[in-house]
């Protein structure tokens, strides 16, 4: 995406030579970003399909395994992410107002919240390792559950792992933005990159909003 953002040496400075004006450039960037998010939806869509199919065939195994996830950590993380979406919105707002210091502040806050999320995720993964609930050679079928609970954990790790990867990329992008913002690269006239990364961040957030109920909540207390 970085193409449209980087400043070339034409007038105005942010305008890349092959666009007619900034308006067209901005339109191109946001259209591009939306298309990209569509591909992301389909990317996760494949795994959601697999999850739904197997959940239907192995309901009890999945519900049982789902109960082994730590719902408090999951809920905490959900709150953290929602908060981070808020700070992201504020960062975009600050950019649109040209408040340089505030942009950096909100971006850093967002990064911090993102990092908290990942930290909690590490704790959760560690627990799974300790309990031999990681699929593969060392997997031990949890007591009282059918062996297909392994499938649940396979999907759990694939889905949350892919999500975490997106978070890591997101934090990298935020760091890049913060550095640029500090140098004063964004003005009320031109802050497309902040806008675009904002879209991406909200998207990653929304994925979690689907993952959390699907993995942690559905079927709880039915045992």
């Amino acid at each position: 995406m970085s193409d449209a953002h980087a400043a070339a040496h034409a007038t105005p400075p942010e305008l890349r030579h092959h666009f007619v004006d900034l308006e067209a450039q901005k339109e191109a960037s946001s259209l591009g970003m939306w298309m990209f998010l569509v591909t992301e939806v389909l990317f996760f869509g494949g795994m959601f399909t697999a999850y739904v199919v197997y959940r239907a065939s192995y309901r009890r195994a999945f519900e049982g395994a789902s109960n082994l996830l730590d719902i408090r950590l999951g809920a905490f993380n959900t709150a953290v992410l929602i908060l981070s979406s808020l700070t992201m919105v504020l960062a975009v707002w600050a950019a649109s107002q040209g408040k340089k210091k505030l942009i950096v502040l909100f971006l850093l806050l967002t990064m911090l919240l993102g990092a908290t999320f990942l930290g909690v995720k590490v704790v959760e993964y560690k627990q799974k390792f300790d309990h031999h609930e990681v699929p593969g050679a060392h997997f031990v079928v949890p007591k009282g559950l059918a062996p297909q609970s392994e499938l649940f954990f396979s999907l759990y790790f694939c889905m949350t792992g892919l999500h975490a990867l997106h978070m890591i990329i997101g934090i990298g992008l935020l760091a890049w933005l913060a550095a640029k913002a500090r140098r004063g690269a964004f003005t009320p006239r031109y802050y497309t990159p902040v806008d675009m990364v904002g879209l991406y961040w909200h998207f990653v957030d929304i994925v979690w909003i689907f993952l959390f109920p699907l993995l942690y909540l559905l079927g709880r207390n039915t045992l």
Binding site: Y58, R60, A61, A146, P147, Q148
Partner: peptide, 20 residues
């Protein structure tokens, strides 16, 4: 193999799975 997938009405899910 996976008796719990479709449970017979009136029985508890006690039949072990014989998968594998």
């Amino acid at each position: 193999v996976n008796s719990q997938a479709r449970l017979v009405a009136g029985y508890p899910p006690i039949m072990p799975t014989f998968q594998g």
